[in-house]
Simulated scan of single mutants.
Amino acid sequence: MTQAVSIDSFDTGYSADSTEFCPYQDHAQYLAVGTYQLTDEQQENVRVRKGKTYLFDVTQPLVPKQVIETPAVLDMKWSHSLINDKQVLGIADSIGGVHLYGFNNQDRLEKLHHVQATDDASVLCLSLDWASRLNKTDQRIVTSHSNGDINILAPAESEYVIQDQWHGHDLEAWIAAFDYWNTNIVYSGADDGLFKGWDTRTPGTTTFVYKRHMMGVTTMQSNPNKEYMLATGSYDETIYFWDTRSMRAPINTFQTPGGGIWRLKWHPTNQNRLLSASMHAGAFVLDLNQENEPKLSTSFLDHTSMAYGADWSFADKDLVASCSFYDHIMHLWKASD
């Protein structure tokens, strides 16, 4: 196993919890980093959470090209299909909203839309995922919320609207994600330890409910390069690998070096490589062999706080950006070949 070292870093001021590289070839050098700060201010008896989203060009010294102020950021994802001819970043915020920002002609992000999922300002939008990773014609977004709700947002004329909404979990729904190979299917995980599948053609109807993880389910991602492969992660520090054709039991598990897991990201082109932001333990890269058995190949241990965000570059196959919370820092590093 290789231990990676930081190539460059940036102090984000506010706590950093999300890193997302732009997937488009002409903007693949751009990295968005989201932050979260709980303030002492109060509105309607709810403490105000502030956020900033930084835009970096990672081919240059790490000075932000742009800083966008929003409510606190919980999650971000780029759409893999153009929205009204724009490359769009979706941001999930701390007051139950989703913001869409698109590149303009000056390579700056400008606000396009905002969708409010709830009127209750105490409800956080905890995650979002786009259906368009493989199916470019499906531009829907799934979001999960701190009250356990799951929303499907869909484009309607010039804006996004709530297409469907249902109560998925009784505790915080930390994560929701599309099956990229069959976008009728959505997965969700929550603090109740439950991992659920949903068919969006009949909203609110589960296709399965499992409690395999020993603690809250925090992350999952469909493998964009390998059909039927899904990875899930949890506070229990274990990654489960699933064959979506037979969900009765995982095909493999991997016990990470600890810390709990917050984000899992499959490599953009290598179907056997998985990145984990493992909170208290750092960030890790796993490689699967022909039998889908995972092995730890790279660890990054420079974070001195909880590593919440991590993502792969779409331009440089080994480049990773990861960020951590209380030390409010983003690092760039390379996974081993």
Rank of each mutant, 00 (worst) to 15 (best):
N147C: 08
D149M: 08
D149H: 11
I150C: 06
I150A: 03
I150L: 14
L153G: 03
L153R: 06
A154W: 07
P155W: 05
P155N: 07
P155L: 04
S158H: 14
S158N: 15
S158W: 10
Y160H: 04
Q163I: 00
D164M: 11
Q165M: 13
W166M: 08
G168I: 01
D170Q: 13
A173I: 06
A173T: 08
A173M: 04
W174A: 01
W174R: 03
A176V: 04
A177H: 12
A177G: 15
A177Q: 14
A177S: 15
F178V: 05
D179E: 07
N182M: 05
N182D: 15
T183I: 04
I185Q: 12
V186P: 01
V186W: 03
V186A: 01
V186L: 05
S188A: 06
G189F: 02
G189H: 04
D191G: 09
D192G: 11
L194C: 12
F195L: 14
T200R: 15
R201W: 11
R201L: 13
T202L: 13
T202I: 14
P203I: 01
G204Y: 01
T205N: 13
T206F: 00
T207Q: 03
V209H: 09
V209C: 12
Y210W: 13
M214Y: 10
M215N: 13
T218V: 09
M220N: 03
N223K: 06
N225Q: 14
K226F: 12
Y228Q: 08
M229Y: 13
S234C: 09
D236M: 07
T238K: 12
I239T: 13
Y240M: 15
Y240D: 14
F241A: 04
W242G: 06
W242K: 02
W242M: 07
T244Y: 09
R245H: 05
R245A: 02
M247C: 11
M247V: 08
M247S: 08
M247P: 06
A249P: 00
I251T: 09
I251W: 04
N252I: 02
T253Y: 03
F254E: 06
Q255Y: 10
G259D: 04
G260M: 04
G260F: 05
W262I: 09
R263K: 09
K265H: 12
K265Y: 09
H267G: 11
H267K: 08
H267C: 13
P268A: 10
Q271V: 08
